[in-house]
Amino acid sequence: MNAIKVKDLNVTYRLDRGERLYAIRGIDLSVEQGESVAIAGESGCGKTTLAHALLNLLARNSEPSGSVVIDGEEVLGRSNRELEKVRGVKAGMIFQDPGASLNPLFTVKEQVEETLKVHLRIMNKDELEDKGLKLLEEAGIADNRRVYGSYPHQLSGGLQQRVMTAIALSCGPKILIADEPTTALDVTVQAQIVSMLIRLKRERGLTLVLITHDLHLACMLCKRIIVMYAGQIVEDGEVNSAEDARHPYTRALFEIIPDISFKKEFKVIPGSVPDLKKVENKCSYCDRCPNAAQKCREEAPGLTDGVRCWYPYEVKR
């Protein structure tokens, strides 16, 4: 069975003055049990909306349609009550800003144990504490006893993210959705969080969905990279570098990241992401694409063979 199965997902936001924003347009996606997938793209491409749709955490002014099945359970159109057995239980989620996701008024102990009480109905105090401390240890917190009694503000960003991960995994979900988990952190801490995620994935056999704008980071954690542009998947496959990429956008996303190993000219993607308030029948990337031809401006390409482009790069696999 697929861990995640998304079928024809569309998400539209209702804006002021009757305007609509087509954030997600017809996404089909299936993720195998134990697979790691990165969803990459610039902001405004719909990657966060997709992540939120996976657990039906969408904003109130959104109108989702289609189907999202998490571990055999449909999540769209379900009430918050019904979703209790999916969120945290089948799939956990961690966010970009761990400081804002933790309640500043409660200690780590209280917040970890709360989820254990609610979902696993553990009531015995010692059992709760044992389990909580073990979770922190698993998230790579060495002095877990000190952290357990601390308030969130007493912890560094890296520790906060570890605590968030411990909470997200407390009910033993098989799926972890990580929305830009390292963006707000320092480089060295970033690297530590990445290795924690790699270890957890291996130990727990997790299915990992990583949302990121950094393709190098995506490649470190995941074999399969899904690149989103203007609310659609433009490339889906095993990509490791600019040379592997078949879609010009994926290639550009790799090239704009300055390289550490040698100095080179600055590469830039000209222009900006298209306005998703109107949808035209053309390739949504054609205005920024170096290879755009007449056909690209006249007809929108479909997703064939893992790439949405009329003239994809030839790549040896």
């Binding site: 790691s36 994935k201 980071l217 490649c219 190993s261």
Partner: peptide, 13 residues
């Protein structure tokens, strides 16, 4: 620690 640096290139699979 830099993603994409030679030393950081380890794959999780």
């Amino acid at each position: 620690s830099i993603p994409g640096a030679p030393a950081a290139k380890k794959k999780g699979g």
